[in-house]
């Protein structure tokens, strides 16, 4: 049975950092989130220290069926913070890194976590580090880390959009083919990165899920369809999530995203990429209805 269009998202990505000039009302946002009953809440807190806000959000979500996963940098984790996160019912911890050098120290944390909650690595891929991916995979395999996530880019900020060119993808595929990472649980949101890791398995899902199975909340409370699609649907200073989900902006957004980019036409690769990343199209091409530049680079 196809999932189709959902009235409420399954996953909310809520970024707490970088800290905004004016903080939103975190308690109010927690109430908004609880009201729409998502299954998962992904918190991102990569500031210099775990903010009290993060703990108070976990406190408010404790006892609800919502599974909260926290992404943070290894330096923010101590034995005391692990105890506190465990007591607050955290379901998963992703340790953020953007280079192999930053992976050092993660194994000690993994050992400290024990079986208290699922632990993995969130490796943010960019133009400067994609060649390190085989080493990251090797690191996970050698250190018993069973989960590797390649997070969605936060394109509502000033992060430059990343695309992998055809030759780069071929190089990466070749390097990864030397490794057996079948036991590693990979979460990959970019269809073209997915293909480098899974050359024979089509990208799962039914096309762009922005504003359908997911929503993103930026540190200042702005709501986006997805972290990579910087077309605001509203702001939680002035609206509730329930109102945003019922809004014409959200309905129109889904109508647009359900249609594949016209340039895809009857492309034979469509079953592989499912229309590509629409946020990247918007940022780099000026329209979410344009071809994903990763595809153009791949084709050319």
């Amino acid at each position: 049975m196809s999932l189709g269009e959902l009235a409420r998202p399954l996953t909310i990505y809520w970024d707490l950092t970088p800290l905004p000039a004016i903080s939103p009302d975190y308690t109010r946002i927690c109430h908004h989130i609880a009201a729409i009953k998502p299954l998962q809440l992904h918190l991102l807190d990569c500031g210099p220290a775990l903010d009290q806000t993060c703990f108070s959000i976990l406190e408010q979500m404790r006892g609800t069926p919502l599974a909260v996963v926290l992404t943070t940098v290894p330096n923010n984790i101590s034995e005391a913070s692990l105890d506190r996160l465990h007591n607050l019912g955290l379901r998963g911890l992703l340790l953020y890194a953007a280079s192999c050098a930053e992976l050092a120290g993660i194994t000690a944390i993994r050992d400290d976590v024990g079986g208290r909650f699922a632990t993995g690595i969130a490796f943010q891929v960019n133009h400067g580090n994609w060649q390190e991916l085989p080493r990251v995979v090797t690191f996970c395999l050698e250190h018993g880390i069973s989960s590797l996530t390649l997070p969605m880019q936060r394109l509502y900020g000033d992060e430059p959009a990343f695309t992998l060119a055809a030759q780069e993808q071929a190089t990466l595929t070749e390097l990864l083919a030397r490794l057996d990472y079948s036991a590693l649980r990979l979460t990959i949101h970019d269809p073209f990165l997915w293909r480098a890791f899974n050359p024979t398995t089509p990208f799962p899902g039914g096309g762009c899920q922005a504003a359908n199975t997911m929503l993103a909340i930026s540190p200042d409370g702005t709501v986006y369809p997805c972290p990579t699609l910087p077309l605001a649907l509203g702001n939680l200073h002035t609206s509730t999530l329930t109102e945003i989900l019922a809004s014409a902006a959200k309905i129109d957004m889904r109508k647009m995203l359900r249609e594949l980019p016209e340039a895809c036409g009857d492309c034979a690769e469509l079953h592989q990429c499912r229309g590509g990343c629409r946020g990247r199209s918007y940022v780099l091409q000026g329209s979410a209805c344009s071809l994903d530049p990763a595809c153009e680079r791949s084709v050319n």
Partner: peptide, 18 residues
Amino acid sequence: EDIATSLLFNNGVMLSLN
């Protein structure tokens, strides 16, 4: 039969049930 009344999610696999 075709109305999905629940959603299940586990380990990256999603199911919708009538």
